[in-house]
């Protein structure tokens, strides 16, 4: 474990709970893409299948459980409890255009052609594009609530910190996983436009609004 990965995981945890609290407190999921949340739930479920077979540490197992439970809870709040506030008119990204190609790629490009490894690879590829429905929804509505932009900033920062973690691990542990690094770069690059808007607007107390 290193500081980049620890801060990254905590940033990821913060993002998930900021969103969960926003929906729970405001009793509304306006401006939030349910499709992205479904993709994130799929990412965690396919990635953490080794939860019971491969014990790494208490921290690792605990975080996996928290990530799965909180993301499933978010999907439940959005599609069942506060379904009336779900903005399906703006959450129209065709996620099958993400899941199918990513599924195919996981079969073609992976470290080991075994079910667990292919599912892990699928999860890594899917996570890199899972935020697209959310970013697409913001581009359609033209703006995002400030709390939603904080959620996105924390979520985008987590994988950027993981990139630093992989640089650290490469030099100090000789650890390198090309699939995770390439997907992590794609994932972080997708946030660049948002990071620019967040830093130039939200940081100065303005609302995040995309140029019309």
């Amino acid at each position: 474990m290193n500081i980049f990965r620890l801060v990254g995981d905590l940033s990821h945890l913060l993002a998930i709970f900021v969103l969960l609290l926003k929906i729970w407190k405001s009793r509304s999921c306006a401006g939030v893409s349910g499709k992205s949340q479904i993709l994130f739930a799929l990412v965690f479920i396919t990635r953490y299948l080794d939860l019971f077979t491969n014990f790494i540490s208490v921290y690792n197992s605990l975080m996996k459980v928290i990530f799965i439970a909180s993301t499933v809870a978010t999907v439940y709040l959005m599609y069942i409890k506060f379904k009336a506030t779900y903005d399906s008119n703006h959450d129209t990204f065709r996620i099958e255009f993400l899941v199918v190609p990513v599924g195919g790629l996981a079969f073609l490009v992976n470290h080991d052609f075994t079910p667990l490894e292919i599912l892990w690879t699928f999860s890594i590829y899917l996570e890199s594009v899972a935020i697209l429905p959310q970013l697409f929804m913001i581009s359609k509505t033209g703006e995002a609530e400030t709390i939603t932009s904080h959620y996105l900033f924390a979520l985008g920062s987590y994988r950027a910190l993981y990139l630093l973690n992989w640089i650290y691990r490469y030099y100090f542990e000789g650890y390198f996983d090309l699939i995770a690094v390439v997907a992590g770069c794609v994932q972080t690059i997708l946030y660049c436009d948002f990071f620019y808007l967040y830093i130039t607007k939200v940081m100065w107390g303005k609302k995040l609004s995309l140029p019309a």
Partner: peptide, 10 residues
Amino acid sequence: PAGPSVKDEL
């Protein structure tokens, strides 16, 4: 070195 098969990250 620890190869990618070691899935010790979240």
